[in-house]
């Protein structure tokens, strides 16, 4: 006689608290992880009027809490017309979310393209929370500009604008920088990473206003790629206390596909070394770009601008959300 039985094994232990740099790869958030009636993985989409290029900021600077504010660009609607998402963005809007990703449905316009030199364009915001309020860098027609708001809502343009104008020499001579990402180092100095000529440049500052460009691009596309754009710099400290400067970016292939990649630097100087895998968008046809990463205590969220869907009718942009570690389930959305 032969007899047998079987049971389903449990998953077993050994995977709890596994070391993870919280830097990726990211998976798309799931339907049950996104509140406010949003359609996963999109934290912002058509109902938000073509919002794109988000910069997400921890609202209290405490990574243990999930509250964030997001500053995003969009094409504002003219009176009596619907916004045209194919045109350059001309206003920056502010959303907030208590859970880090489920943004409120009605944003507040915080900055419109009105100043001379902006050329009717404001976009690609990069915001920092400092002791005196929020510093907001953004791209305009004449370069990278800066505005401040002590309350995070009422932004005043800096008198030194543009803080990084069209290059008059160096590797990006004659080109206007765009898509800025700014971090402030522990020693109080500043770094800006920006896009020019399909590569990423770096500038340094002691006060956030006066910037000095590097003599060379710090990150260039590999052979066969069309461009390496939209940098997003993130500071972190490893489990053993080593400082890291992560630089997320969008890599454009020759056939028009885009993926989100990352490189990192040991400390704050020296060369960037590429990650071992794509962090988001591998095999995707939605062409993700403009990555923005916000780190919490146990996970990181990645926000990217990508097509709202594969169909021709969904060619407008949306902001999708990813989470790392990919194996982690996010806490329930709020609300």
């Amino acid at each position: 006689m032969v007899a047998g039985c079987s049971t389903l094994a449990d998953a077993g232990g050994g995977d709890a608290n596994a070391p993870n740099a919280l830097a990726g790869p990211f998976r798309e958030v799931r339907r049950e992880e996104l509140g406010q009636g949003r359609t996963a993985p999109y934290a912002l989409r058509d109902e938000d009027g073509g919002v794109r290029d988000v910069s997400v900021l921890d609202d209290d600077g405490d990574p243990a809490t999930l509250g964030v504010i997001a500053l995003a660009a969009r094409r504002g609607a003219s009176a009596g017309s619907t916004p045209d998402a194919s045109l350059p963005t001309n206003e920056l809007v502010r959303f907030s979310a208590r859970d880090g990703r489920s943004f409120e449905l009605v944003p507040t316009v915080v900055l419109a393209a009105q100043a001379a030199g902006e050329g009717g364009v404001v976009g690609a915001p990069s915001a920092l929370r400092l002791a005196d309020g929020v510093w907001l860098y953004y791209a305009a027609a004449d370069g990278i500009r800066l505005a401040h708001a002590t309350d995070g809502l009422t932004f005043e343009r800096d008198s030194t604008n543009p803080v990084l104008a069209t290059a008059t020499g160096g590797w990006d001579e004659g080109h206007t920088p765009s898509s800025p990402s700014i971090v402030r180092l522990p020693d109080g100095s500043w770094r800006m990473f920006y896009e020019a000529l399909g590569a990423v440049g770096e500038a340094r500052s002691q006060d956030g206003r006066q910037w000095t460009r590097g003599v060379e691009a710090v990150l260039r596309p590999p052979d066969g790629a069309a461009g390496l754009v939209a940098p997003c710099a993130v500071l972190s400290r490893s489990a053993l206390g080593r400082e890291r400067l992560w630089l997320y970016h969008s890599l454009e292939s020759a056939d028009g596909r885009r993926t989100i990649e990352v490189a990192a630097r040991e400390g704050f100087d020296g060369p960037f070394i590429g990650g071992t895998a794509t962090v988001f968008g591998f095999g995707s046809e939605l062409a993700p770009t403009e990555p923005n990463v916000v780190r919490f205590a146990d996970f990181s969220l990645l926000f990217v601008t990508q097509r709202a869907g594969k169909s021709a009718a969904q060619a407008y942009p949306g902001v999708a959300v990813g989470v790392a570690p990919a194996a982690l389930g996010l806490p329930a959305p709020n609300p």
């Binding site: 830097a23 490893s238 489990a239 960037f272 990650g275």
Partner: peptide, 16 residues
């Protein structure tokens, strides 16, 4: 034991 990763962009990162 300390585990120091060579690549600063390692997704696991330093560990112990």
């Amino acid at each position: 034991r300390r585990i120091l990763k060579q690549n600063p962009a390692d997704f696991v990162g330093d560990a112990s």
